[in-house]
Design a protein around this nucleic acid. Sequence first.
RNA 1: GGCUCCAUCAUCUAAUGGUUAGGAUUUCAGAUUUUCAUUCUGGUCAUAGGGGUUCAAAUCCCCUUGGAGUCACCA
Length: 460
Amino acid sequence: MIVTRFAPSPTGYLHIGGLRTALLSYLWARRNGGKFLLRIEDTDFSRNDEAAALAIVEAFKWVGLEHDGVIEYQSSRLEIYQQHVQKLLDSGKAYKCYMSKEELDALREEQTARKERPRYDNRYRDFTGTPPEGCEAVIRIKAPLEGTIVVHDGVKGDVVFNVSDILDDFIIARSDGTPTYNFVVAVDDALMGVTDVIRGDDHLSNTPKQIVVYRALGFELPRFFHVPMIHNHDGKKLSKRDGATDVMMYKTMGYTPEALLNFLVRLGWSHGDQEIFSMEEMLELFDPSDINRSASVYNTEKLDWLNSHYLKNMSNEKLCELLEFHGVMLVSHDKKEILLDAVKERAKTLVEMATLINEVLVRPLDFDEAALKKGYKEESKGILEAFATALKNSSELHLPSDYHHVMETVVAQLEIGFGKIGQPLRVALLGKLSGPGLDSVMAIIGVEETLARINALLKH
RNA sequence: GGCUCCAUCAUCUAAUGGUUAGGAUUUCAGAUUUUCAUUCUGGUCAUAGGGGUUCAAAUCCCCUUGGAGUCACCA
């Protein structure tokens, strides 16, 4: 069985990069009928972890990801870690170190001055004497002193680290007894039965340390997949300062979960020339060993395109539902089908769509200056009046085509082009020169409102 | 700085060692549209540089350059 996990630290929201690794882990687990676990990495006791976890679950829910089992909090697993620290102590694979922070700093300074790599000097590795007084010990693990550690990575291949370059007897429990990151990650992943660790490649350099822990405890290694970072336009790791990194921001900006996931899955992964992936297709096709080795730049232009694609192909019923979040209530609107059809192909986001809808539904308060100048000329007045009369004399106006027919008749009568009536009418109805088809707009707002808007412009 | 990773159009990416280096986004031009958008058609744009190996290199090797990540009693 494949077991994957997502293990964020509690930052209060779900990061867009986090969502990607979560998605990939989720896909791989689900594709194999396995489990996708959620664990909160809160060993440094920052408060409101619960709220942070809730924020992640909320974001998961929005995009449609679901974790299995209960959420594990590292802060509530302290006993487990202590047991495993003790185990290592008992077996002589870890030891107490009485070096103070000040001493450590001093050592590091010396080493740096000598242009050496700062590292612990193993002074308590085989210590048997009486410990110095008034000092709380940290627990260090006995790391190998020489040789190499090879990370067999499903994305990067075999990455070999020279022990002497990167390792020392690193701390697994602080002087206050709390365990450190690299220790708990290994313990948790092993104990939770995680078989495939899919995470950002910023963790690649931590992996040797975790492997040391796995080995010391006699745990079997999982498969590792270190997926490349998402970079911003400056080519740097994506961070809070890069604008929208909170997944829920995408909801308020009017993006659909389908578009977001589709966008993220294509960052560093592809399947031939295919661009559009439904969740079903992702589940069918995704394999972490197909992930690219290189970082990708986060560029929302494609996301916009994907979003408009999904919007265009969405049922009106669903649109109606999603639009409510953006303050547009259409459920009981009798012309909602015409409205949504008129608007769904011209919006990149639900926010844009909501704006478009309001522009149709709400009578314009004033008329755009440039639009007036360009679309409402001297001759326009008479044309609009003629059109208004024709409307009044028509009956049974319901569909856009009915209104279109009236426009055609007037245009024929006056022997003018469509533009002569379209432009001023557009100004009257929408207050500006762009927007949905006029026949649709009129069908939506009805004859009465159409006449009212025309009158408003004529009196302007 | 040490260690590690990475390098195909502006961006996301494709290409069993053999293709006119493909697709998508963006952009540009044209068509469609009463407008805007959509849609359709077409165009511009890439193998970082230098050495090898090979009949043949984007692809394999080495070097250079550039970029990124990481080096805590943070996670």
